[in-house]
Nucleic acid binder design. Structure first.
Lengths: 247, 247
DNA sequence: CGACGTGTTGATTCCTGTCAATACTCGTGG
DNA sequence: CCACGAGTATTGACAGGAATCAACACGTCG
């Protein structure tokens, strides 16, 4: 583990890439100034653990760059990812001292942090923050429920296709080309994908090969995915049509 | 489907069985009066569908008596329960017009309802409601994440044991005997349990028989469960010890 | 009584997990 | 420069757990 320097820019809120999607999205300029005054940045390398389950967590944060994951581990080592935090997602529970899951930096990661107690105080004063946090939490709950359907009822192939479509969609909201091939880099190893999907990494690998063989995806290198026809991928997810933002 | 009369009592908020656990838990007496003014009760028989996925939902509600479930259905009929609402749980998204899941009365059910828009207005005026709703939503998110571990990584036997311990625990918070055998009625059919656990009803039945054969549970009739030794059941859940409120 | 809903149990299939071998990439160090 | 090892990924052989298909038991209600 080389200790390279992580060089993420540290922007002012007004220039922040997640300004309009994160927990601060609804804040007016005066509210934003108050947040600006108490925020601070932290960076982590891919693979680093941010906090262990049960540890005290004295801050909350927004993901600015990169991907973080929440995982639960059973005694015998079985692991299940229970949260995948992409840029603008919120990390932490304002009124809980400790966390219930391991939090890991899946890629190089930059967080915009707030000490927990000052943030809690701000929530009382600035309803826009609490409102936005409620909205985001409800969205996460909806996402968790989609995820439960995936884990409980979908086949391995459907799980992979669903996962790819989720990543493609979330990616598209930031990097919106609009038409033509959809292409993106996987932010997860095969093992992390397995943890996300409730599979083994061998099954993930096999199903990826299967989708490639059938022309649903193209693999350029191990991580770069090209989707020649998004509808074709959607057909493999098991979801009913037109559930998509894309397409 | 007989149209028997459901005779749930309609209490004043002060006497309400869920007064201190529901979304109104933090309300002061004056805030409670405002809620009291706009609340109304609805009752449903076991099996009735309350709303279909995609339908417009013009109210939000607290479960007062009984059990409701949220389920997602795939085109080919595969179903996954994604929410199990017990007394005091909250139903609906204040700032969403429609619901994403089928909502069904699993047992005879009484809801304490509020029309959505007036409730939304009240949330702005009474921070205690919004605060409590955020807290409850975060708790639900935690529960959903436990559930994801169950769906993704547990064996059929562990799923059943986990489910029984969850029901026993939630039941105990209302009907707290404190010691001796833990006993309760299952609020779900075998099929609904299967939908909850991501199994088939046959597997549910087999595993129930297995736990009975091994003395972990006793079955009195089809629905009444007696747990002679709660620790024995916990050993079967796959969770690490001391995660429990009971024990 | 017969129909229906609910639940149990058996026989068989098959999808995914397990165990194992191999390939590829990237640093490190001789 | 190449050998070596660690980390990541692919593929094969095989086993096992849960799904599927099917028969049957029990209680309730018309």
């Amino acid at each position: 583990m080389s200790s390279k320097q992580l060089a993420f820019p540290q922007s002012q809120c007004a220039d922040c890439p997640i300004r309009h999607r994160a927990v601060c999205a609804r804040c007016e300029t005066d509210e934003l100034e108050k947040l600006e005054a108490i925020k601070y940045y932290r960076s982590y390398e891919a693979g680093q653990t941010i906090i262990w389950a049960g540890d005290k967590m004295d801050f909350v944060a927004s993901v600015v760059h990169g991907v973080a994951s929440l995982t639960q581990t059973m005694e015998d080592g079985r692991r299940q990812m229970v949260g995948l935090l992409l840029p603008s997602d919120f990390l932490g529970r304002p009124n809980r001292e400790s966390v219930a899951y391991d939090v890991t930096a899946t890629t190089d990661l930059q967080l915009c942090c707030f000490r927990r107690v000052p943030f809690l105080d701000m929530m009382d004063d600035t309803p826009h923050i609490a409102q936005r946090l409620l909205e985001m939490t409800l969205d996460e709950l909806d996402a968790a429920r989609e995820w439960m359907l995936l884990l409980g009822r979908k086949t391995a192939r459907e799980k992979i296709a669903s996962f790819l479509s989720i990543i493609a969609r979330r990616d598209a909201t930031f990097n919106n080309s609009g038409h033509g091939d959809v292409a993106f880099d996987l932010p997860l190893t095969r093992e992390a994908m397995a943890d996300y999907l409730g599979l083994t990494l061998e099954t993930v690998s096999r199903q990826m090969s299967g989708l490639k063989r059938d022309g649903v995806i193209r693999l350029e290198g191990k991580r770069h995915i090209v989707i020649p026809d998004f509808d074709l991928l959607m057909d493999e997810t098991g979801d009913d049509a037109d559930g998509g933002i894309l397409s």
